[in-house]
Design a binder for these strands. Structure first.
Ligand SMILES: [Zn+2]
Ligand SMILES: [Zn+2]
Ligand SMILES: [Zn+2]
Ligand SMILES: [Zn+2]
Lengths: 135, 135
DNA sequence: TATAAACCTTGAAGCCACTTCAAGGTCAAA
DNA sequence: TTTGACCTTGAAGTGGCTTCAAGGTTTATA
């Protein structure tokens, strides 16, 4: 099959497939006589793993690590399990940070409403509150 | 004052200050006879607003919009208030997305634990679960 | 006085995971 | 025959910086 059919089977763009090849995640495929890339079912499986892992926000480096194990005929299952747990922890931490940020934004908004809104120099308005967040 | 002192007063790096200048957020400053950048207190105020807004995750485009108003002697307070509310909403939405992602990661981890962990081809293991997340 | 340490300058490249653009070549249907 | 869908490559753009390379300037110390 050609690149577009491969890409569609994994729900990614064909330009992403070319990018994965250029970055070493996917091996260079056979070519048809006209120079077009030619893929088979094993390429679909590989790309689906890449797409699934990307949809879980794994980095291409992480994915390369998983694929490298498989290419050496070593089972990557343990590595994948560990990565899932670690990524979940990272996301959890990120959520906490964003919750703090949201609170700061809402607090600033509420407080800002109590100040004049025609202050050019920002000495007595919400702009001043933003400026003084330093540290 | 020179660039490092300015940067320190706003708790940013001096390379960031040069980057802000190159991207038009900060105007080109005067120069000392030796070519070094020379700043004053108004530069500190401007950079503090930039730094405060960046710490709230505003984009440089947003910040440029705020500064453009001030540079035209129009009060940016209303704009800032609106941006605070809008950014808070964006963060809230992002948190929801990350919470869903975290749940997917934890669920996959739990389910993956019930499968063998020595499957090279990924037909009966957590790797297969990752691959089949398509769509 | 020599020299090291801390500061300053510029321009370019690197980061991440792509997308978009430019400028073409290939092939099937109408 | 011409339209349109598909394919190719390489380069540049995205955002907000940091890092690197290759210097010049100033202050402190030996
Ligand atoms: Zn597995
Ligand atoms: Zn575990
Ligand atoms: Zn204001
Ligand atoms: Zn409001």
């Amino acid at each position: 099959m050609r690149i577009k059919e491969l890409a569609q089977q994994a729900y990614v763009s064909d330009t992403a497939v070319r990018y994965y090849e250029s970055s070493g995640i996917l091996p260079p495929p056979r070519r048809l006589p006209n120079g077009y890339r030619d893929y088979d079912q094993s390429d679909v499986e590989r790309l689906k793993l890449v797409a699934g892992a990307r949809s879980l926000d794994f980095s291409l480096d992480d994915i390369a690590e998983i694929l490298a194990l498989r290419d050496r005929r070593e089972a990557p299952c343990r590595t994948v399990l560990d990565m899932l747990a670690q990524k979940a922890d990272e996301i959890q931490q990120r959520i906490i940070e964003l919750q703090q940020l949201e609170k700061q934004l809402r607090d600033l908004h509420e407080l800002g409403l109590t100040f004049p809104t025609d202050d050019i120099d920002g000495k007595n308005c919400v702009c001043h509150l933003v400026s003084e967040r330093a540290g």
